[in-house]
């Protein structure tokens, strides 16, 4: 018994000295690999949390700033805003409302469709005309992450109304081509830029006779191998 006690004391680490428990090299390596894989798994899960939810925090803050830019604190557009053609990339452009997505669905459009613009809200294609003008007013927006403004995009139907409000007035468009509830409806390739041409489907230099709107988003919802679009024509509105 004495011997056992002495042995125990001899093998015990000295007080205050922190040393790793003795393990074989193989066990150390296996443990290290295991920890690495657990860590990698946790980081991937966190990334999913980031894309689905984390990106929305930044977008919500950006939308608040953009609302201030438009002077919407009072519920009224600022009466003396920057003209649309003098806006810089990322500036607040106007408001988009789509009743199909809900009565309180309202987003501030930003000028430009670079990644940095679109993470703040739906973006206006720079090459497309301003709302109400002859040609095609085109907008891109996220369907997942970044506040997912277009989450319900496939639910858009022919006849749905899209309302745009800018410094120059309020413009009401009615869709004449939409996914109509089909999750794969109006799916196009990434390179199919004809949808945002002045006259969709016609050569780029065709003279427009209609005042159109086109919306694009990603397909599938949680990926971006393709795009989806919906398009419509101006049916009303009033200039300021």
């Amino acid at each position: 018994m004495n011997q056992a006690a002495e042995g125990g004391v001899r093998n015990a680490p000295q007080r205050g000295v922190k040393s790793a428990p003795q393990r074989s090299v193989a066990a150390l390596v296996a443990g290290g690999v295991g920890e690495f894989m657990l860590t990698a798994g946790a980081i991937v899960l966190l990334f999913v949390v980031y894309t689905l939810w984390g990106t929305g925090i930044q977008t919500a803050n950006a939308q608040d700033d953009l609302r201030d830019q438009l002077g919407l604190d009072t519920g009224q557009l600022e009466k003396d805003p920057i003209p649309l053609d003098q806006l810089e990339l990322g500036d607040a452009y106007g408001i988009i409302r789509i009743p199909r997505f809900g009565d309180d669905w309202e987003w501030i459009i930003v000028q430009g469709t670079e990644d940095g613009d679109l993470k703040n809200g739906p973006g206006h294609y720079l090459d497309s005309v301003d709302p109400g003008q002859l040609g095609n007013f085109a907008i891109a927006a996220h369907r997942s992450g970044h506040g997912e403004p277009m989450a319900e995009f496939p639910e858009l139907r022919v006849g749905d109304v899209v309302e745009i409000e800018t410094a120059t007035g309020t413009f009401v468009y009615q869709l004449d081509d939409a996914p109509n509830g089909d999750p794969d409806g109006n799916r196009i390739d990434i390179t199919e830029t004809w949808v945002v041409d002045p006259v969709p489907g016609e050569p780029e230099d065709t003279k427009p006779t209609e005042r159109r709107i086109t919306l694009t988003t990603c397909w599938p919802r949680w990926g971006s191998s393709h795009r989806m679009y919906a398009t419509g024509v101006l049916i009303g509105g009033e200039e300021v």
């Binding site: 990334f47 990106t55 469709t113 990434i190 949808v195 945002v196 988003t217 990603c218 990926g223 679009y229």
Partner: peptide
């Protein structure tokens, strides 16, 4: 994560 999102082109919505 913002870097990874840009680098891997996982959320593009423009044509």
């Amino acid at each position: 994560f913002p870097w990874a999102e840009d680098a891997f082109n996982i959320s593009e919505v423009t044509v």
